[in-house]
Amino acid sequence: MLDDFFIRALVAGIGLAVIAGPLGCFVIWRRMAYFGDTMAHSALLGVALSMLFAIDVLWGVFAVCLLVALLLLVLQARGSAGARLFSSDALLGILSHSALALGLVVVSLMSWLRVDILGFLIGDVLAVSRYDMMVIYAGGVLVLACLGWFWHSLLVATISEDIAEAEGLKPKQAELVLMVLLAVTIAIAIKIVGVLLITALLVIPAAAARRFSSTPEAMAILAVVIGVIAVVGGLFGSLHFDTPSGPSIVVAGLVVFCLSLMPVFSKAPISVPAPENEEK
């Protein structure tokens, strides 16, 4: 019989995979993997600050992630208008690791608290409470509903921001919504996979789904399925081999991704109409 904590982790992880699938597709399509990484790394600073001010970790992480995302948006927008000294790549590198380092420093400064840093870095299934499960499912419904509402404008904005703007779809607004949804997802994912690996949960299932999909919607749904497989496989693996939950889930995802690259799974080649002159 499975332990109670394990069932909780399983239920929470599956919920997380369902949110991460469609969101992860946008992370891939919009080349935001490093962006997501930066937000996730800043989550540790959120953890530290919430402990300092004795508030729920969830809110601290959400606030800091969102702040960092907005900071990046502002920096990038300013950079594109004027002469830019640093590429957004360099900016992300600076912010991402500074936020992580700052979080680690602040946590260690609070010597009166006993904090399981490793748990926050790579996830800790034991830490998933009933409350966390509720948060994941409530947050998940919210995130997916929002994503569904903005799906059309986000898709058009991803294909071309100019077309979206010209057709009155407000791409900037859609982009902001995506940031907020990412921040929420990171905040609720932190206990399962940890700040270092949240981006992997977003990116790997979506990437594995790419080859088998012919429309954006198919890819989003398939990413959910693959994410669930990774979570279930990873958590059972973590139980069996006594490995940390976060890395185990990511490794399971990696296995699925590698399988997806196998030539065996190649679909029938895209149908090309036979050249007309063959009819002669």
Binding site: C25, W29, R30, I159, S160, D162, I163, E167, A207
Partner: peptide
């Protein structure tokens, strides 16, 4: 609107 340049990311099936 048809913009001048448009490259749909190969990562998005469409």
């Amino acid at each position: 609107y048809v913009p001048q340049k448009l490259a749909v990311s190969a990562a998005m099936p469409l």
